[in-house]
Design a protein around this nucleic acid. Sequence first.
DNA 1: TGATTATTCTATAACATTTATAACAGTGCT
DNA 2: AGCACTGTTATAAATGTTATAGAATAATCA
Lengths: 117, 117
Amino acid sequence: MFRIDPLSEAPLFAQLAASVRTAAAAGRLRPGDRLPAAREMAASLGVNLHTVLHAYQDLRAEGLVDMRRGRGAVVTDAAGPLASLHSEILALSRSARGLGLSPDAIASLVKEAALEL
Amino acid sequence: MFRIDPLSEAPLFAQLAASVRTAAAAGRLRPGDRLPAAREMAASLGVNLHTVLHAYQDLRAEGLVDMRRGRGAVVTDAAGPLASLHSEILALSRSARGLGLSPDAIASLVKEAALEL
DNA sequence: TGATTATTCTATAACATTTATAACAGTGCT
DNA sequence: AGCACTGTTATAAATGTTATAGAATAATCA
């Protein structure tokens, strides 16, 4: 359910956070769902425990998951509204790819725009 | 016209490339316009020449600028189509910020979506 | 209680970024 | 031709980021 590309230039923790984020936006993760335990996720992805925790803590800082010792990481209600962006994100991605833009360039444009709001 | 935030976690060269990219999408840079000479841009931003060149060469790899020794960096025709994305990018950014998403989270979602196309 | 979980800390190695110099090689103007 | 401008290439050093490893601590749940 969560993928990582060891050959990608992006940091592993960022890739994992992005994968979870996208799963929520796509509706594959819903509020109340529990993420795999950090050690379990680390083992299944073949990365270090701290790398997974770094990703999980980024997601918590965003409010997408709720984490507590002994309980694990649970998806919050923030995942609902997130899913409402799905079609809009898909439409922009298609337009931009159609112009030959790279995923990085598209992301850069959107990030700059969001920063200015 | 081009801004950089020394306190941001993002690499300086990436920030500069993003700034130029956004200027093109916003129509503030048009095909045929010339970017400031690398040494001049470096002096005005307070960064090293190589940092600016790194950004410029990323933009050339994307096809957004054309670079030659002695002539400088000139914006290509690719800037035209890019501007057509402007309103769509702005609309998505507003929707996402309205949901409380950070610029990084929004960019991550869009990048993932673009990667899967 | 015992098992599971996240949290925190130290330490290390590998890699990326930025800086600093310097020399080199096209371009365009006088 | 000569000159001032431009990007290009090379080398090196300093700094920051990322990923790994191991260990100890604390909260949760059955």
